[in-house]
Simulated assay, not measured.
Amino acid sequence: MSVITLTTDFGTLYPASMKGAILSINPDATIVDISHSVPPIDIRAGAFAIYSVVRHFPPGTIHVGVIDPGVGTDRKAIIVRAGDQCFVGPDNGLLIPGARLLGEFQVYEIQDGILPESISSTFHGRDIFAPAAAHLSAGRDVQEIASKTDDYVDLDFSGYTIEKQFIEAIVVYVDDFGNIITNIPAEKLLDKIEPGTILSVSGRQMPFMKIYSDVPKWGIVALVGSHGFFEISVNQGSASRLLHLTNGNSIRIGIMGSL
Score class of each variant (00 low, 15 high):
Val107Pro: 06
Gly72Asp: 09
Gly159Pro: 13
Ile62Tyr: 04
Gly72Lys: 02
Ile114Arg: 03
Val153Gly: 04
Thr161Leu: 12
Val88Ser: 00
Gln165Arg: 15
Gly98Ile: 00
Asp141Thr: 08
Arg126Trp: 03
Ile67Ala: 02
Arg126Asn: 04
Gln111Ser: 06
Asp156His: 08
Asn92Cys: 13
Tyr108Asp: 07
Thr161His: 15
Ser120Pro: 05
Gln85Cys: 14
His63Val: 00
Val66Asp: 11
Asp151Tyr: 12
Ile162Leu: 11
Asp91Cys: 10
Ala130Phe: 05
Asp112Arg: 13
Glu117Gly: 15
Val107Arg: 08
Ala138Thr: 01
Leu115Lys: 07
Phe105Gln: 02
Pro131Asn: 00
Leu102Thr: 08
Gln111His: 04
Pro116Leu: 09
Ala130Gln: 01
Thr161Gly: 07
Ala82Ile: 04
Pro90Met: 12
Glu163Trp: 10
Thr122Ile: 15
Gly139Asn: 07
Gln85Trp: 12
His124Cys: 04
Pro116Thr: 01
Asp127Ile: 02
Gly65Lys: 00
Glu104Leu: 13
Asp84Val: 04
Gly83Met: 10
Glu104Lys: 15
Gly159Leu: 11
Asp68Phe: 07
Val88Pro: 05
Arg126Met: 08
Asp84Tyr: 14
Lys76Asp: 13
Lys148Cys: 10
Cys86Val: 06
Gly65Pro: 05
Asp150Phe: 15
Leu94Tyr: 07
Val64Gln: 03
Gly93Phe: 08
Pro90Ser: 12
Ala146Gly: 10
Glu109Arg: 13
Gly125Asp: 11
Val64Thr: 01
Gly125Phe: 10
Thr73Ser: 15
Glu144Lys: 12
Ile67Gln: 05
Gly103Thr: 03
Phe157Val: 03
Ile79Cys: 07
Gly98Trp: 02
Tyr108Val: 01
Ala146Val: 06
Leu95Ile: 06
Glu109Lys: 14
Val66Leu: 12
His135Asn: 02
Gly103Glu: 12
Val88Lys: 00
Thr149Ser: 11
Gln111Trp: 09
Ala133Asn: 00
Thr61Asp: 00
Ser137Val: 02
Phe123Glu: 00
Thr161Val: 15
Ala132Pro: 06
Phe105Pro: 03
Leu101Ile: 11
Ala134Gln: 03
His124Asn: 01
Pro90Ile: 09
Asp91Lys: 08
Val107Tyr: 11
Val71Leu: 12
Asp154Cys: 04
Thr61Cys: 04
Gly70Met: 14
Glu163Val: 03
Asp141Ile: 05
Ile79Ala: 06
Gln111Ile: 11
His124Gln: 08
